[in-house]
Each structure stands twice: as structure tokens, then as C-alpha cells.
């Protein structure tokens, strides 16, 4: 079933006068693991910030289901974004709170659950990401990989429909990154969430991506979309092939080694 959860129409993004990307059109379907890829500095993270409502587009529209994010008033907008969970590149954990308090924050602030129930949910979410027993640690006491997993536990606190990841495996060793990928896959399957990932980690892109778009920094727009494997097999754009093969193969000899 291909039910659109987010549709982007004619989106242009800019910082002041500087255009980042223009005329973006794509759809994220329910259950997708949607990869936003592209070279460094092409506007991947900026696109993510637009999708989660942190930045306003220069032009164009973003729809959640059928409702426009930009046309919505503050209340309606909160409702639309309420079912989002976001994991920032650095985890984004509040450094003055313990892990348990961090994970509990969205729960205490947007629900009326009893303290005991919140404690249970926090313990459960931390256990899901393999951090059971770390409730009373502060973020600074944990390794980078653990901080990311704790950020993931917090992003999942309200059982989101859509999980956003900004470079989840940046700064992690290959094994830890692989574990995080597996975790994302397993959570997607068991929570039936939609996942949107910004990454340029090829291993992750091929391992978990079910759909993808490729942003190009030179032409400042989206130059390809589709599943990463299909893109590698059928794309004729040398930029995409170079990206997906770490620049090892030119477009001409693709298919031989792909």
C-alpha cells in the first residue's frame, strides 16, 4: 500500500539570499525507510529541518497527509508535528537532565500519564535501544553511540508515526553504525513507523533504504529518486553512480561491478 505520509511540492529552500535547493517534489510513503542523500553541503539536513517544521521554506508546500504544514495555524501545526520523533546528529539530549529525565520529557510535557507509568515507559524505551540501567546517567557520561541511542529512545517516547534521523551513523564505528541500522529496521517493522534518514553512509543507504532521493549541490535540485539499489542499477547519471560507488566506477562500466 502506498499511502503518502509526507508530500513535498515545489519546495525551495534558502538562507537569506543564498538558494540551497529549488523545485523539490517527492512523496514519502507509509512504512518507507526514506533516504535523503547527496554530497556534503547540498542541503540534506536543511531539507530535514524543513520537513520537521524548524525552518520555513522560501517557496512551496509540505503536506502531512492531506494537510499543509505552512497553512496550518499554531495549534493545528502542533497536532501535525506531534507524531514526529527526531534524532539529531549529536543526539540533542538536554545535558542538564539524566537519560531518564530526557526520555520522560516529551511524556510529562504532552501527556497526563501518572509518574509511575512514565517511569515504566522510560525504562521500556531505554531497554529497546539497549540502555536499560542507564536511567540515572547524564549524557556527558556516555559514549557517542550511546548518546545517539538515548536520543533515539527519546525520539520514540511518544510512539511516533514518523521517525527522522539526521546522519545517524556519523562519527560511529562501522559495527556500532551497523547495530544502529539494525535497530532502525527492527523498530520500523515492529512499530510500523515511517523512517526518514539523512545520510551519506553508503552501507546504511543500501542496507536499509527502501526509497531515496538524491540532492545535487551544483544544479541545486533533486536529480534522482527511487530505491537505492534500482538507482545504482538503472541510473545513467554519472553523479549518482559515482556517489553510490564511492567514485570507483564511471557511468560507462556500471553493471559490471555493481
Amino acid at each position: 500500500m502506498n499511502q503518502a505520509v509526507i508530500s513535498v511540492r515545489n519546495l525551495s529552500m534558502a538562507y537569506g539570499e543564498v538558494l540551497i535547493q529549488r523545485d523539490l517534489n517527492f512523496t514519502i510513503n507509509r512504512g518507507d525507510i526514506f533516504v535523503i542523500m547527496g554530497g556534503s553541503g547540498c542541503g540534506k539536513s536543511t531539507l530535514l529541518r524543513h520537513l520537521i517544521g524548524l525552518q520555513a521554506p522560501a517557496q512551496g508546500e509540505i503536506f502531512y497527509g492531506g494537510a499543509s504544514l505552512l497553512a496550518a495555524g499554531p495549534q493545528a501545526r502542533q497536532q501535525l508535528l506531534r507524531k514526529n520523533g527526531v534524532l539529531f546528529q549529536s543526539g540533542g539530549l538536554l545535558s542538564s537532565l539524566t537519560l531518564a529525565e530526557n526520555v520522560a520529557l516529551p511524556l510529562t510535557e504532552s501527556t497526563r500519564l501518572a509518574a509511575k507509568k512514565i517511569r515504566d515507559i522510560v525504562a521500556y524505551k531505554l531497554a529497546l535501544v539497549g540502555l536499560a540501567g542507564f536511567e540515572d546517567y547524564y549524557p556527558a557520561q556516555l559514549s557517542g553511540g550511546m548518546q545517539k541511542r538515548a536520543g533515539l529512545a527519546r525520539a520514540m517516547a511518544l510512539d511516533p508515526d514518523i521517525l527522522f534521523f539526521d546522519e545517524p551513523s556519523a562519527g560511529l564505528d562501522p559495527i556500532t553504525a551497523k547495530h544502529l541500522d539494525d535497530l532502525i529496521l527492527r523498530l520500523r517493522d515492529s512499530l510500523s513507523a515511517t523512517v526518514v534518514i539523512v545520510t551519506h553512509e553508503l552501507a546504511s543507504i543500501f542496507a536499509i533504504g527502501s526509497n531515496a532521493i538524491f540532492l545535487d549541490a551544483d544544479s541545486k535540485t533533486l536529480i534522482a529518486s527511487g530505491s537505492p539499489h534500482e538507482l545504482l542499477a538503472s541510473s545513467s547519471d554519472p553523479k549518482i553512480i559515482q556517489f553510490l560507488t564511492r567514485g570507483n566506477h564511471q557511468a560507462a562500466d556500471k553493471g559490471v561491478n555493481a
Partner: peptide, 14 residues
Amino acid sequence: MRVNDEIDALKTMN
């Protein structure tokens, strides 16, 4: 907190 994305994280948590 801004450098660490904590402020953005708060916004996304409403």
C-alpha cells in the same frame, strides 16, 4: 544548547 541541537530538539518535542 543551541550548538548541541538541544534547542531544536525541544522545538520538535513541542
